[in-house]
Design a protein around this nucleic acid. Structure first.
Length: 233
DNA sequence: AAGTTATGCAACCGCTATTCG
DNA sequence: ACGAATAGCGGTTGCATAACT
């Protein structure tokens, strides 16, 4: 019997992402862009699959991702689009800038589907006043949430509030989309010929504090930014 | 207060589509 | 034209927490 080679590949970590992992991935992508998901984790110092990194970035870490409560308008769009397209979540997500297919899918399965069922039932049985009362209650809560969101207390928007939805790509301009030809290790970030001005020209930290962020809180983003500057300067 | 059940959501899995050599 | 690698999509699962008994 030949013992299969061990430790040929580093163990792929699964489960929830830690703060440190988020920092690493965000810092790496902010610095080098997305050049190859399957290779990136290795160079970013992450024990994750490329697939997992892509998902984490696309759904939560991307600067233009809008997290938090859905507005009534968004709900209406989702319901309408779902009627037309069914479970084509990515197509539906295209109609809702900042929302991800995964988030929309979860929102549908946990809230909207039930609401539609309730609506259908109440239209079949109009005497169901309690249902209607709770419906309007839900609607009020939704309105409140929207208002509170606009104050930045919760209802999270990464990279700014809805009004200040300045995406990282906007901040960085064309350089954000530059795809590097060679991989880069996070450990090699201290690039002598890159000036801090370069970094400042791409990031405006004041924008990070324009809205709360979760799980990537504003302090987290600031940490990432500090790390990048620290390594560059 | 403790145990149980329901809910919400992040993340995984498997499959298909697309790209590239 | 073909096969491998990679990206993307949608269904599903598992865990944390809230709500209920």
């Amino acid at each position: 019997m030949v013992r299969p080679p061990q430790n040929e590949k580093p163990a792929i970590k699964k489960g929830p992402w830690s703060y440190e992992e988020d920092k690493k991935l965000t810092a790496y992508i902010n610095k080098y862009g997305i050049w190859n998901w399957s290779q990136m984790p290795k160079f970013a110092g992450l024990s994750r699959s490329g697939k997992s990194c892509r998902l984490r970035w696309m759904n939560y870490l991307r600067p233009d991702v809008k997290l938090g409560n859905f507005t009534k308008e968004e709900d209406d769009i989702i319901i309408d689009m779902h009627e037309k397209l069914g479970g084509r979540w990515s197509a539906i997500a295209k109609q809702l800038p900042g929302r991800t297919d995964n988030e929309i899918k979860n929102h549908w399965h946990t809230r909207l589907k039930k609401r539609i069922l309730v609506n259908n039932n109440s239209s079949v049985n109009p005497s169901s006043t309690k249902t209607k009362a709770s419906e309007s209650e839900t609607s009020i809560h939704c309105e409140q949430a929207i208002q509170e969101n606009s104050h930045g207390d919760f209802g999270v928007v990464i990279g700014g509030s809805t009004e200040l939805n300045t995406s990282l790509s906007d901040m960085m301009g064309d350089s954000y989309h530059i795809f590097w030809k060679q991989p880069f290790l996070m450990e090699n970030l201290s690039v002598e010929n890159q000036q801090s001005e370069y970094a400042h020209s791409q990031f405006d930290t004041s924008l990070w504090s324009q809205g709360p962020m979760s799980p990537s809180s504003s302090s987290f983003i600031n940490d990432v930014y500090s790390d990048i500057l620290y390594n560059i300067v």
